[in-house]
Design a protein around this nucleic acid. Structure first.
Length: 475
RNA sequence: CGGGGCGUAGCGUAGCUUGGUAUCGCGUCUGCUUUGGGAGCAGAAGGCCGCUGGUUCAAAUCCAGUCGCCCCGACCA
């Protein structure tokens, strides 16, 4: 029996509308009265809080400290690093009036905080003893985007940005890759989202960075989504901002810098990787509600009492559980929690109580099974683990099935137009990237760490190929 | 910035061509019956028809302007 939610547009009919429907119907967000600035509703914000909680643990384990820097940058400071300014200036929001007076030095609402961190680091780094500095901040940033979509591209979005300073280049490079790896693991262990990872091309790297690395996911419609980045800055910013320290050998030196971030865009990835025509499908470890208990024939003697007992058992086992004892009908609740993507639903009615078990239904595939009451404490965490693995496997299969090696320009065209990653040998020239962008609206996503050549010429220009690179249409 | 679409009750909408008491569904409230896939019946409340101006005896409807949102492009960390 196929049960289909009629309030959500089918993914195959209109993927963009499906996405918007899910964002709204699952109560993740709402639009505000200013374009591009969304309201993160409690259910959506709770997912972000789970991500924060996971990452904060990882950041702290690796020696990072959380800080908070100001919302605004003076425009004179903002001008200091040339590439950086050129990259961000077109999309800054600038405050020009304060207290009714025109400001002499207008204030830029941070689009990212490199400048603020550099100015601060200049003040607090003087000696080799002050290094490394491993700071992270959770905040929102503003970038004046022309096209906006919930979670994927907003004028304001929430993120974390790590900014670190190191005595040596080697240490800074290690940091860059270490943080990329943490993001990769976050995808695997928390979000059940697999990535391709690697280094960005010159064209696609961050404004002011020496090297940018990224993790890239594949959405259900075949488009790529950049989910996190980690940048190695070298000493460029440090020199521009005059950050230096006195080393053990008595010489004045310039430190090496990194920055790295993930944003609420990850919510978009979760939605578009796992969601289906009945709504959101949340991976268990990031789900604000992991298990929902739906009582059947609530008015019947003993039903609610049993539900509460099960609730208590699961709560004690550390599971995020909700008992919905509202007076909606069970059918309504089934739909509601499916739209919201709750990984596991437990149905408890008179028949179950008689048989001493609950009926458990998985969101991801609607597979039903009964679980004895006295086995719940062990069985539910195990079930959640299985769901997580199942979802990761499914997403991984989809990713691998949609990476295609291409040898000719025609093949490249077919792959990126169909959706998915075209794995290609590339000469390294900017012109070839521009041509692909111009012809197919696809961009280079990243160059994987495993550079195993499979052809010797670039399919765009025919010149000698130097790099393995992924191309795809991207959000 | 270009193309398209849309602003009517908390939400979703009909009505607009051809001006004349504002339609329907969901939700909300009350009561009873229900409850294993978005319950049924009966009753009730709820409207500056985005905003401003114009035409008219009369505007949700026609005209002009304006504000905003969504989608698709272009642009873009």
């Amino acid at each position: 029996m196929e049960i289909k939610n009629k309030e959500i547009t089918s993914r195959d009919d209109d993927f963009a509308q499906w996405y918007t429907d899910v964002c709204k119907k699952a109560e993740l967000m709402d639009y505000s009265d200013v374009k591009g600035f969304i309201i993160y509703r409690p259910y959506g914000y709770a997912i972000w809080e789970e991500i924060q909680s996971y990452l904060n643990k990882e950041f702290k384990k690796t020696g990072h400290e959380n800080v908070y820097l100001p919302l605004v940058i003076s425009s004179s400071q903002f001008q200091k690093e040339k590439d950086h300014v050129q990259g961000f200036a077109p999309e800054t929001l600038i405050a020009t009036i304060g207290g009714g007076q025109t400001l002499d030095d207008p204030l830029i609402i941070r689009p990212t905080s490199e400048v603020l961190f550099c100015n601060h680091y200049k003040n607090i780094i003087h000696s080799y003893r002050d290094l490394p500095k491993l700071y992270n901040q959770w905040c929102s940033v503003v970038r004046w985007e022309k096209t906006t979509r919930p979670f994927l591209r907003g004028s304001e979005f929430l993120w974390q940005e790590g900014h670190t300073m190191h005595a040596t280049e080697v240490e800074a490079r290690e940091e860059t890759l270490k943080m990329l790896d943490i993001y990769d693991r976050c995808g695997k262990d928390l979000l059940a989202v697999p990535f391709v990872k690697g280094r960005k091309t010159e064209k696609e790297k961050f404004a002011g960075a020496k090297e940018t690395y990224s993790i890239e996911a594949l959405m259900h419609d075949g488009k790529a989504l950049q989910c996190g980045t980690s940048h190695y800055f070298g000493d460029g910013f440090a020199k521009a901002f005059g950050i230096n320290y006195l080393d053990k050998d008595g010489k004045i030196k310039t430190p090496f810098q990194t920055s790295w971030g993930v944003s609420t865009r990850l919510l978009g990835a979760i939605i578009m990787v796992h969601g289906d025509d009945n709504g959101l499908v949340l991976p268990p470890y990031v789900a604000p509600i992991q298990v929902v208990i739906v009582p059947i024939q609530m008015a019947k003697e003993g039903v609610l009492a049993k539900c509460r007992e099960v609730y208590k058992t699961l709560e004690d086992a550390g599971i995020r559980v909700k008992l919905d004892d509202s007076d909606h009908t069970p059918g309504w609740k089934f739909s509601e929690y499916e739209v919201k993507g709750v990984p596991l639903r437990l149905e408890i009615g008179p028949k179950d109580i008689e048989n001493n078990h609950v009926m458990a239904v998985r969101r991801v595939d609607r597979i039903k099974k009964t679980i004895d009451f006295d086995k719940l404490r062990e069985a539910i965490p195990q079930e959640l683990a299985e769901i997580h693995n199942e979802m990761y496997k499914k997403a991984m299969t989809n990713l691998l099935n949609n990476i295609t090696e291409v040898h000719t320009y025609e093949e490249l065209k077919n792959v990126v137009n169909k959706g998915g990653y075209a794995k290609m040998m590339w000469c390294g020239d900017r012109e070839c990237e521009d041509k692909i962008k111009n012809d197919f609206n696809a961009t280079s996503r990243c160059m994987p760490f495993d550079q195993i050549p499979f052809d010797d010429k670039c399919p765009v220009c025919g010149k000698k190929a130097k790099y393995v690179v992924y191309f795809a249409k991207a959000y």
